[in-house]
Simulated assay, not measured.
Amino acid sequence: MLGVISVEAPGLSVGAVARRLGVSASTLRTWDRRYGIGPSRRSEGSHRRYDPSDVQRLEVMNRLIMQGAPPGEAARVALGEEGVRERAPRAHGAGGNRLALSTVPDRTRGLARAVMALNGPVVTETVREAVARDGVIPAWEELIAPVLRGIGERYAATGEAVEIEHFLSGTALAALAEVRPPSPGAETRPVLLACAPEEQHSLPAYALGAALAERGIASRMLGARVPERALRDAVEKIGPGAVFLWSQMAHTGDVGVLERIPGGRPALRVIIGGPGWERPLPEGVRFVESLREALEAVAEALGVPD
C-alpha cells in the first residue's frame, strides 16, 4: 500500500506521479479522460500539474483498484461520490490487480503479476528466458497464451484491461523478435505471415514467425491490418511457399479474401488461424487451432522434415 505523497508547488507532472504510484503515464491520462480524476493545476507554461489533493485522490483510486474495484467505481470513491471503504467488491472474479488464471505454473502467475503492474523489464526478461530455455512454442503455450486468455476473460467481465493486452503484446513481441531468423540462401520458399484486413491482433502471427525462425524456416511479416490488395501484391512479388493469415475478431475473417489469393507454381498453401474466420472455408484452405499445429502445417506445406 502506498503512503501519502508529499507534493510541493508547483505540482508534479504526469510522469512523476506515474512513477510514484507505480502505474504508466498513459494509465493516468486514461483515468483523467475517462473518469475525470486528473490534475487540477497549470504551470506557467500551461502544463497540467498534480497538486497534493490530486495525488491523494489518485492514491485512493489506485489502492481500491489493487484491492479489486473496477476503475469507474474506484474513481467515484476517490472523488468523494461514495464513502471510502477499506475493501471494494471484486469485479466478477477479475481480481483487481490479478488475473483469474486456472492451474498454471508459478512462472506464469509471475508473468501475470508483472503484466498487471506494467513492468516491462520483468515481462521481457521472463519471456526471453522461457524462449531460450524451452523454445518458442512451449513459451507460448505455457506462459504467454494463458495470460492472454486471462486478460480476455477480464475484459469480457469488466470491459477493462485493453491497455494490459497492448502492453503484453508489445513486450512479448520484443522478446520473440530476438529469435534469430535463418541465414540467407535457405532452399525453401519463405512463408508470408499477415493478419486479415482490419485485424489488429498480430501477436500470434509474430509468435509463428519466431517459431519458424527457430525451425530454420524463412518468413516475411506483413503485420496487422493488411489490405487485401497489399496481400495479393506481396504474394505475387515474394512467391511464398505458404501464406498464414490470422483473424481474431469476427468482423475481420472474410473468407472471400482467401478465395482471391493468387495461386502459384508449385501450388500455394493457404493456412489460417484464429476464431474470427467465417465458415465454411474455401476448398484447400487449412485451419489450424494452435501455434504448434500452424508450425507443423507450414513445415508440411514446404516439405521441411522434422
Rank of each mutant, 00 (worst) to 15 (best):
L2Q: 07
N62E: 14
F167S: 06
L99F: 05
E199M: 07
R154I: 07
E289C: 00
A78D: 02
S24C: 07
V127H: 04
L245G: 04
R29V: 08
S202P: 00
G45F: 07
A213S: 14
A297I: 02
P105F: 03
R128S: 12
S46W: 14
A94E: 02
E81V: 01
I238C: 09
Y206G: 01
E125L: 05
T103G: 06
H201V: 02
G45P: 01
R225Y: 05
E165G: 08
R232K: 12
V127S: 07
A114Y: 10
A132P: 00
P89W: 04
L231K: 09
G276L: 10
R87L: 13
A174Y: 08
R20L: 15
N97L: 14
A9I: 04
M61V: 09
T126Y: 02
R85G: 03
R85Q: 12
M116G: 02
L176G: 01
A156H: 13
G135A: 08
A267Q: 13
L193Q: 00
L291C: 11
R57C: 01
Q248G: 04
A224W: 06
L208W: 03
A194H: 10
P146V: 09
I271T: 14
A74G: 00
R98A: 11
A297G: 01
A213P: 02
T252F: 01
R180D: 11
P52N: 13
I5V: 15
V243L: 10
M1V: 04
P305R: 04
S102N: 13
R189S: 03
E278N: 02
P138L: 07
R220T: 11
A69F: 03
L295F: 00
A88Y: 02
G80K: 06
I151K: 07
W140V: 15
D306T: 07
L231N: 07
A207I: 00
P184C: 06
N119H: 10
I65E: 10
L173D: 09
P146G: 10
G150W: 08
E8N: 12
L58P: 13
A18N: 10
G68W: 01
W31H: 07
P71V: 02
R260P: 05
V235P: 08
P305Q: 05
W140T: 14
V14D: 11
R41S: 10
R33V: 00
H92T: 02
G216I: 05
E81T: 00
G135N: 06
A301L: 12
V4T: 11
A172E: 00
A88Q: 08
N97G: 15
A75V: 03
L281C: 02
E163Y: 11
E178W: 01
E59V: 08
S247H: 11
V257E: 00
D306E: 11
A196F: 06
L245M: 05
G68M: 03
R20A: 14
F244C: 13
N119G: 00
A145W: 06
G185K: 03
P10M: 09
R42S: 11
I151H: 05
T124I: 10
D134G: 01
S26R: 15
E293V: 04
A117Q: 14
D233L: 03
T124V: 11
A157R: 13
W277A: 01
V191W: 02
T108P: 09
R107T: 08
I65W: 05
G110E: 15
E141W: 01
S202D: 12
D233R: 10
R85P: 06
P282Q: 03
Q200C: 00
L291T: 12
A207E: 01
G38W: 11
S169I: 02
S290I: 09
L148K: 07
A112Y: 09
G273V: 07
